[in-house]
Design a protein around this nucleic acid. Structure first.
Lengths: 207, 207
DNA sequence: CAACAAATTAAACAAACGTTTAATTTAAAC
DNA sequence: GTTTAAATTAAACGTTTGTTTAATTTGTTG
């Protein structure tokens, strides 16, 4: 299945967690090795260097993210239903890959490492393509209004989720979410609803 | 005016830039000192430690961010106009403090430093309070719909901007923004418009 | 079982890190 | 002009960093 053996996967999982929790510079080879239960030399042995480990991790994760949207685009649903399904998928995907999204957010903004983000950009591009197709379909049917900047809708969806997750402590406090489950369930329920409500209001043709 | 002398401000400015560009762990005392044109020992001398420098920086910046929203709330404008002004202010503020927002985004999500973020949370809370007041005013006038989760509207505004800024390379590419000015002007024009359009659509009462 | 490559280890490496020291310069007060 | 404190410096401190070495164990093949 995967191109990595068990030990390599252990290292990748440990690195993913620690890079997300402490940042690339904050996480050390020694703590990663300890969490993965391997000797520190194994990381250089398998991946070459710390930076190459990050690169392998990004490619490993992003390549497994591809082509989930295609299905929705093909299903026999109304444009509004498709947007609904799309938002569910966005939220689900960030849920499943929150560590990776955390890492990427930092790596994309930092000027330190200009490593190969092509694979990540390609995914975003093909996702955007599919998204555009679905919106334009709704516009042709007269369901959606036409004066929209389609490229800016995914940022609103993704941005809302990411912002909510990165200000977790604040929202836990003001919304009274005192357990992990309460917080996660708020995302899959209220937050999802809010996003759907927002996007539908934006798309809806008033005529 | 400020509690810091010129040299201390130099250090704070250098730290702000480098913490934002390379992360807290990625930026070293030596590079900060070099950028600020001071001896490396001056940082410990004035601030005590690297971590305390970050803390001083956060307090320094956040305390100067306070109470800009109050004015809008008091002005004699329609609810829709107020929301308009509010979004302008949000965007302007992130523009002015993009380094600080960048730093905070990382520090809020990292599990490493659980330093005193109270001052930052207090600002957010009082901002949210003012925002709520403006929305509820619009609801009473019948301009805004009533089935809204008001707490989730700022995340949509802020999230969209932050997401757009942190995926800069990607959006520069797909939108053909090949200069710094083109990118910044896109934010103050098209992106601002998109956010206003989105929030107004969400708020608008269909009756 | 001998031979070989792959996997694994503890130890050492140089470089960079944040911080401190101790000496010197600058500035202010009397 | 002397005294006293603050500011500034180069150098050294002990750790920790990512990486490499060289030796040993493990597993596989003939």
């Amino acid at each position: 299945m995967s191109e990595f053996n068990d030990k390599q996967v252990d290292i990748l999982l440990a690195a993913e967690q620690l890079f997300a929790e402490e940042g690339f510079d904050g996480a050390s080879i020694r703590t990663i090795a300890k969490l993965a239960h391997v000797n520190i030399a194994m990381i250089s042995y398998y991946f070459g260097s710390k930076e190459k480990l990050l690169e392998a991790l990004i490619i490993h994760r992003t390549s497994s993210m591809k082509m989930q949207l295609e299905n929705i685009s093909r299903e026999d649903l109304s444009p509004f239903e498709k947007v609904d399904r799309l938002i569910d998928l966005y939220i689900w995907r960030i849920n499943e890959n929150k560590c990776m999204y955390q890492i990427m957010h930092f790596e994309l903004t930092t000027k330190k490492r200009i490593l190969n983000m092509e694979s990540f950009m390609e995914i975003k591009k093909s996702n955007a393509e599919i998204f555009r197709r679905i919106i334009e379909e709704g516009q042709q049917k007269g369901d959606f209004r036409k004066d929209l900047t389609i490229e800016l809708i995914p940022p609103t969806i993704l941005g809302t989720i990411v912002h909510f997750r990165s200000n977790r402590l604040y929202f836990e406090k003001i919304l009274g979410l005192d357990t992990e489950e309460a917080y996660e369930s708020y995302i899959t329920n209220e937050l999802t609803l809010h996003i759907k409500q927002t996007i539908k209001a934006l798309l809806a043709n008033e005529n």
